[in-house]
Design a protein around this nucleic acid. Structure first.
Lengths: 223, 223
DNA sequence: TATTAATATTACATTTTTGTAAGATAGCAA
DNA sequence: TTGCTATCTTACAAAAATGTAATATTAATA
């Protein structure tokens, strides 16, 4: 059951909303103290936030920006100001949706569901990254291409995943080593080379050995 | 560079849009043949689709629904009909955003960015699932609680990840075994028990041994 | 071209992961 | 209680993953 946090200063409105959301199978939580709000919001660990723009003490856009510094939690901005500028600011501050009051309650519900579906896909679906030339199945630690599936070891997976995240950029050997091993444990520089070699061997099985390019003196690059 | 697919039958509009998106650093692709459209869209493997509702042959809402059967690609519905019903239908068919024409181009851009940010977070961020009692770091195959980090082996990770995906539901031993091993390879039933035991041992290190409950004759349940 | 430093390759030893076997325990029904 | 079956526990051997060392190759530049 998803927990939705309602941050709204109009008491009547927020109570109605709470009841409506609860009827639709959500765990709705109300926030009625707006003093230490950003920290309070984060502590609640909701799955989604309905955030009013007009609030006492600080405005919702500022709160949104602050939350985004430390959290990816889905945010829907709610406001009675039908202002394109507000919408633009909200979106650029990291909100996911913008809804104007009085809102169509069905549409609000649809937006909540659309956003939750999107934000939870990581959790519920199998975790795959489609990289065009191959698919990285993180859940099962597999390198997939067409019908070929190759098991990756933990090190191989980490390296390839890291390179995929930084695809198109040169990644220094040091950076990869920091990602692979605790920087405390002093592991030989060559160990990375060997691990890269092993990964390349597996990539070669699907004709992609050269997809990891060596940038001599700089690092590696996933093409 | 993200590839954005424009599905719009008004030639002037789509060309303007393409230029605008390209100026803003996207790879914009136009679709101008609407016959075999669903398959064509999927083949293009774009990062996001701008989908007009009014199209020749089939309407955008239907296309959206068809795409959603096989793909999670982000979809923004674009339309000149400012209709709450259309918006509701679109969202419920799996669209992520709804924009009415004539649109504020900056807001469209902000929505594209917001949606891409959300849909790509899996790829770019480290892959973590916050399960309240613990965090499952899939990227690094770690079980985390507060400052304690425990390495999970591939099997342990797979089992826990599977249970997390189905949290609160009883998962049969057979189902887990199918997920862990190719159903072809006949692996002893007890092997699963041992693997569960090993996972429980690690969970016990963070006082969570009993979070995996045995449902005798039915399977296991992550509480 | 010769030199040097960075990276690649190969082989091997150690450590970790994994599956199996054998016996123990616990829940349930007669 | 007894017997049966599902699950658990422990120990061990085989297999896989990993780090290291020794050597080879490559690219840059003097």
């Amino acid at each position: 059951m998803y927990k939705i946090l309602i941050v709204e200063d109009d008491e009547k409105l927020r109570n109605e909303l709470k009841i409506f959301l609860e009827r639709n199978g959500f765990n709705a939580v109300i926030m009625d103290n707006f003093k230490n709000i950003v920290q309070d919001i984060l502590n609640l660990k909701a799955d989604l936030i309905l955030l009013d723009i007009n609030l006492p003490y600080v405005d919702g856009e500022f709160i949104c920006k602050e939350i985004r510094k430390v959290s990816n939690i889905p945010i829907i901005m709610v406001t009675s100001r039908d202002s394109e500028l507000d919408e633009l600011i909200s979106l650029n501050y990291g909100a996911d949706q913008y809804v104007t009051k009085p809102y169509n309650i069905q549409i609000l519900l649809a937006k909540i569901n659309a956003l939750l579906r999107r934000s939870k896909e990581t959790d519920t679906n199998q975790n795959k990254i489609d990289c065009n030339e191959f698919i990285l199945n993180i859940s099962k630690s597999l390198l997939e291409k067409d019908d070929v599936k190759i098991e990756l070891t933990k090190n191989e997976m980490k390296i390839l995943h890291y390179l995929v995240m930084k695809r198109g950029c040169i990644v220094s050997r040091e950076e990869i080593m920091d990602y692979l091993w605790d920087s405390q444990s002093f592991i030989d520089d060559n160990t990375l080379t060997v691990n890269i070699k092993r990964l390349r061997n597996k990539l070669e099985e699907i004709d992609l050995k050269d997809i990891i390019e060596t940038k001599r003196g700089q690092g590696y690059l996933l093409k």
